[in-house]
Design a protein around this nucleic acid. Structure first.
Lengths: 134, 134
DNA sequence: ATACGACCTCGAGTGCACTTGAAGTCAAGG
DNA sequence: CCTTGACTTCAAGTGCACTCGAGGTCGTAT
């Protein structure tokens, strides 16, 4: 007779570090299973913390809500997790590489403007258009 | 008597590659100078293209509207551009480095989940919490 | 009985950088 | 004269991932 701990949303919030509103939001978006209710209130068992941890991991990997939703329920029922991850991850890796390349490009621009010696911003603007004609 | 070319907003949009609505928006936000009007319509001279190019450069360097506004009008009137750029750029470079580090971190997570062999996502979730206790 | 605290739902608000839509003005062309 | 097309203003909408507020319910403690 081991008693399964029953958690209300406030407790789940505390343990997961999320706001209660976020947990309700995830439920409304179908990212976590709908818990039982006791007199109207949500009653969770501890497995919800695992589900939330998975969502947190996916968020930490840069996935959007829509992508996490797809990960969780956008595949044929018995598609194994590895397969699910790999499909989403391939595109995301490319996206991250693009993001990094973009940031590097920005850094190049920044290093260039830091060396600016124009007397006024208008000169700056004009210099720009002369430097990059077309 | 060289005639200065007078451009209406549609022409500026075409030459700058921006939407007319974006140009009006920049004006309303104080990013570009208010042009003359002829029977209600905006009439630009070519210098607006320089101003827009500068904004485009700044956007390309990752600056927000607010930061560009500060660059253009958030300093004592005779602060030279080089000084303006340097003040904003220092913080932005750090931000970009953080962005890159974050993306690298995400890539690490992704490479890890790609090797997942869990039979179900629930196993995945549970594995997560066991792996990172606290 | 009543106050309290934690929960409930639903709709609206947040920030960013614009875009879209409605309703109106203007000059030129047929 | 009337249409056409480019322009005008102003308010509201977009996407994301939630948060916030109002107004109401529930069980427990006083």
């Amino acid at each position: 007779m081991s008693e399964v701990p029953q958690l209300r949303i406030g407790e789940v919030a505390k343990r997961s570090g999320l706001a209660a509103s976020a947990i309700r939001y995830y439920e409304s978006e179908g990212l976590i299973r709908k818990p039982a209710r006791r007199s109207g209130q949500r009653v969770y068992d501890e497995s919800v913390l695992d589900q939330l941890a998975l969502i947190d991991l996916a968020k930490g990997a840069g996935f959007t809500m829509a992508e996490i939703k797809k990960l969780l329920s956008g595949f044929a029922r018995r598609t194994p997790p590895g397969e699910r991850w790999r499909q989403l991850t391939t595109a995301k890796l490319a996206e991250l590489d693009a993001r990094i390349a973009e940031a590097e490009r920005m850094k190049t621009v920044l290093r260039k403007v830091m060396r600016c010696h124009c007397p006024t911003l208008d000169d700056c603007s004009r210099a720009l258009r002369k430097a990059q004609p077309g």
